[in-house]
């Protein structure tokens, strides 16, 4: 397919995901996907003194894991694309400090995994770099103190709240090698439907997800049935129900092949209300069960669409509504060659 002036970019050379790695905290390890993660830590401090340092360490470990998994060395990685939720994306930048690789910080809130993979694919497909690394991370305790309340405060979480996933995922994309291939990327628009409740991220992000997904189907001339799996990032239970409604309103019916990372990562009895959220949510789900099934050939074609809520504590205190964004990539399974 030729490049067209659409929101979707089609990759002629279809970059390979040659290595992947996911690392999670103890709570996620006890969740539904516990056995699929590359590494489960039973200490959410990851041997560090503060949670911020812990998140950084987690990201470094994920990158190291992905590099090893790809069977390459740090010298082969020509660019590191990463982002996270903390102010000034410190987890990513500080992790990049230790590896001596050119670094580009990206921010797309919880959509960062899809954003960095899409950007990385563009760079590799365009022939500018042979191999790049894409990563992201989030930590429950750092997000909680930055966006909400102190951990020990005795408050109740509103019923629409979600639980930030402690985890990090990394991928190595290359123009040569073996593995699942990224065939297209759809960059989303910022969509705001006027939700002002910061404890209802799912509802704030669902319209953006709907917009991107509709664009993707239109640009690629495909239908939901053409995919083995349509995976949204962290809409949660409420958000994904809203997405299904919105898509139906626009005449597209999402079937049983639609899943949401936030909904599948935790078990029902883990007290996470609407489900998981955070950059790490979509990153760890993608880099565990989804990658494994893409490699084994169980999935042939998957849409990975991570969603993000682009707010800050300042904007919500000033009464602004919560804008959402969603980026999507289409990944093709291993055995299509």
């Amino acid at each position: 397919m030729k490049k067209e002036e659409k929101q979707t970019i089609f990759f002629n050379n279809k970059p390979y995901i040659i290595g992947y790695y996911s690392i999670v905290g103890p709570k996620e390890g006890k969740g539904t996907l516990g056995e699929y993660f590359s590494e489960v830590s039973d200490d959410d401090f990851f041997g560090q003194k503060t949670y911020e340092k812990a998140e950084r360490t987690m990201l470094e470990k994920a990158l190291k894991g992905a590099v090893d998994n790809a069977g390459v060395s740090y010298d082969d990685i020509k660019l590191f694309l990463s982002g996270d939720l903390l102010n000034q994306i410190i987890s990513s930048s500080y992790a990049a400090r230790t590896i001596n690789i050119p670094y580009v910080g990206v921010f797309g809130a919880c959509s960062t995994m899809a954003e960095s993979l899409a950007l990385g694919s563009c760079l590799v497909d365009g022939g500018h770099f042979e191999t790049v690394a894409c990563a992201t991370s989030s930590h429950f305790s750092t997000a909680e103190r930055q966006f909400r309340f102190p951990l020990e405060l005795g408050n109740q979480r509103p019923p629409t709240a979600q639980w930030t996933v402690t985890g990090s995922g990394a991928d190595i994309i290359s123009s040569k090698g073996k593995g699942p291939r990224i065939i297209s990327a759809t960059f989303g628009k910022v969509v705001d439907f006027g939700i002002s409740d910061v404890n209802n991220m799912g509802a704030a992000m669902a319209p953006a997800a709907c917009d991107t997904l509709l664009t993707l189907f239109k640009d690629t001339k495909t239908k939901p049935e053409d995919y083995d799996l349509i995976l949204s990032g962290d809409l949660g239970k409420l958000g994904s129900e809203i997405l299904i409604d919105l898509m139906e309103y626009h005449g597209v019916k999402l079937g049983l092949n639609y899943k949401d990372c936030g909904q599948i990562i935790f078990k029902r009895n883990q007290n996470v209300l609407m489900g998981g959220s955070g950059c790490g949510c979509s990153a760890t789900v993608l880099n565990s069960i989804i990658m494994k099934k893409l490699i084994s050939g169980e999935y042939k074609k998957v849409i990975f669409m991570a969603t993000g809520a682009l707010l800050s504590t300042l904007s919500c205190q000033q009464g602004d509504t919560v804008p959402g964004i969603a980026h999507a990539i289409v990944i093709e399974g291993d055995n299509n060659e």
Partner: peptide, 20 residues
């Protein structure tokens, strides 16, 4: 847009499962 946001907000409000 304002009308759309208003409709969306009331739709979401109705969608939130009423916990006991």
């Amino acid at each position: 847009e304002i009308e759309r946001n208003k409709r969306y907000n009331s739709y979401v409000e109705a969608k939130i499962a009423k916990t006991h």
